[in-house]
Amino acid sequence: MDGLAHQFIAGIATGGIYASVALALVMIYQATHHVNFAQGEMATFSTFIALTLIQAGLPYWVAFVLTVVVSFALGVAIERVLMRPVQHAPVLTHVGVFIGLLLIVGNLTGWVFGYTTKVFPSPFESEGLLFGGLVSGHELGSTVVTLAVLLLVYLFFRHTTLGLAMRAAAYNPASSRLVGIRVGWMLALGWGLAAAVGAVAGMMVAPVVFLDPTMMLGILLYAFAGALLGGIDNPMGAVVGGFAVGVLENLAGAYVVGTELKLTVALAIIIGVLVVRPSGLFGRVVLSRV
């Protein structure tokens, strides 16, 4: 029974990571109606930046904040340089640019930081397990951080003028311009935020799965699955979906298929959701952009 409870809680901890990445995906989806295939690679790159800063002697949380800021700036820059010129191009072009971005960022990571697997520190080191062996310090800490980030993002979108303007720009760009919103910058800001949230996810997951250039590939898949499960146009849905997928994955891994088919579980969830309920659990009906 303890085993099951621990699997469940561990699932929540990884689910938090999926939820963050899913949220990043949904933010870009809401702003641009595209899914950023390079989101995982960007997060990995950010995590390597964090590791470099920590190894240079900075305290963990200073490195953490710096990494988030740098990632935000990189996200904005990528939107300005790569996405803006093709904003009116067909979907195929966007997918192509995302793939190009994935290749560039993914390989740049290996090129700059090396291909060896590295240990990434956790700020929540604790001796053994807490609460009678149910949860490790890192699991608890990373879940709290993830929830805090999600809460911040929620507050930002719900209760600040800038957040409101970003939502407006996503829903109705033409009307947004008429009230003076600089729509192009809102998109860039969305990219920046997504990159920052992705960076946090990367730093939280790296102590568990170890850091290497392909660290996020599987996580991205689970995040896709979570985003789709919750409804790709619904940030809260994406978060719930992310947590659900995390628990599902852990339970399936422990009791049903074993760890060898983890990615296939994600694929199955994605196909299942798309076939059975394409709008996800909480989403509005999906309009396909063919």
């Binding site: 898949l221 798309l274 076939v275 999906v286 396909s288």
Partner: peptide
Amino acid sequence: RLGGLYLALTTFSLAVAVPQ
């Protein structure tokens, strides 16, 4: 049943899962 983007996403997942 999937618009352009969802298909891209699903097939992307397929591609990642194949070796496994």
